[in-house]
């Protein structure tokens, strides 16, 4: 198991786990994503995005890359495994009428 993320307390309708997944998928799809891109795609405020990006970095699910003045994020190998695990969990619980 790739770390426990408690998702029982939804924040504004989306669980923390779902928000993590949305951010990770956004970054993974773009391969390298800038914060503004993630902000729009994951539909988060700047404060919340900063908070979640910090948490994902702490869990080593994403890494930050500086390219001159620009700042990018990439999904790490652990992050890619986490995405797969959460998607499997989503499929499993979905069959019982639940969402992550």
């Amino acid at each position: 198991m790739l770390g426990v993320v408690k998702s029982s307390q939804p924040e504004r309708g989306r669980s923390r786990l779902k928000i993590y997944l949305d951010i990770l998928l956004t970054i993974d799809k773009a391969q390298r994503a800038r914060p503004t891109h993630i902000l729009y795609q994951a539909n988060l405020s700047y404060d919340r995005l900063t908070k979640y990006l910090g948490e994902l970095r702490e869990r080593s699910l994403i890494s930050e890359i500086a390219d001159g003045d620009a700042k990018y994020f990439e999904v790490t190998k652990k992050g890619k495994e986490f995405i797969k695990e959460v998607e499997r969990a989503q499929a499993f619980v979905g069959a019982f009428g639940l969402d992550i």
Binding site: M1, L17, F92
Partner: peptide
Amino acid sequence: YYAYKYNRLVSNNVL
């Protein structure tokens, strides 16, 4: 086994 495993991730009473 999978219900317990995913419950660690999702944390849901139904699981």
